[in-house]
Nucleic acid binder design. Structure first.
Lengths: 132, 132
DNA sequence: TATTGACCTTCCAGCAGGTGGAACCTCTAT
DNA sequence: ATAGAGGTTCCACCTGCTGGAAGGTCAATA
């Protein structure tokens, strides 16, 4: 398969696939004309990467997952630990965003939002004190 | 004030403050010895930046907010609109993270997590089918 | 057969928003 | 005098791609 075909099937831009080759995540063969040639196994890895990336795993985590993937003797516990770690991370991010949201909406509520120059949002950003 | 002092007072690393100068957000004077010299006004801007960045505003948004800040004739509506836009953005991010979290925890639940090589997480990443 | 257009190749640069390090200068206290 | 804590510049690197230029290749059509 050429890169365009796998790109479509894996739902990844060709540029990204070339980049994944650059960082040695996928190693396609080459045809006589220099074109990359992908097998079904490569295809699998790319789809795996696409899924894992879209689930928020970093490239390095993907590398690890791929090595567990190809290791027939991996313990499922190892994989589960990675997934659970990721969930914790997501929880932290959500909490952070919520507190951020709370602060901002507090600011917005206190801002009359008309054409007067007086603006509590600006005032607060300048003073560093949060509305209660 | 030297950079170290403002760094501490604004709660920003000196490196970041120099970077902000590079991108022309803050323009400190220079002493004879070449050291950067910050006024209280610079200090204010840096604190403003620190707050706004930690609230998730991009550098360009900060630039905009700073220009509204120094514009005594700004309309508070303009600032409010920026804040409300940011809140929407945060809501989108939270929703995305939640769906991501749901998928991952679904995967983790189905994984027995012992030392057997069989692992539904890996299987799912490979197949692209989500557990229900 | 010539040519068009889609596809492929490489390489280089850039995005955000900094961070790390090297090599050097300057100030202050002992 | 010297050590150590600050300051300076510059350049490279981080993540995860993405855009573009300059060119080679392939399949179909006029």
């Amino acid at each position: 398969m050429n890169i365009g075909t796998v790109a479509e099937r894996a739902n990844l831009p060709p540029k990204t696939i070339r980049y994944y080759e650059d960082i040695e995540l996928v190693k396609p063969a080459r045809l006589e004309n220099g074109y990359r040639s992908y097998t079904e196994v490569d295809m699998h890895r790319l789809r795996f990467l696409q899924r894992a990336r879209s689930l928020g795993f970093t490239i390095e985590e993907c590398r690890l997952l791929l090595s567990l993937y190809k290791d027939e003797n991996r313990a499922s516990a190892d994989v589960k630990a990675i997934a659970l770690g990721k969930i914790k991370e997501i929880d932290r991010k959500i909490a952070e965003l919520r507190s951020l949201r709370a602060t901002l909406s507090n600011l917005a509520i206190h801002c009359h939002g008309d054409d007067r120059p007086d603006c509590p949002i600006i005032d607060e950003l300048a003073s560093g004190e949060t509305f209660k």
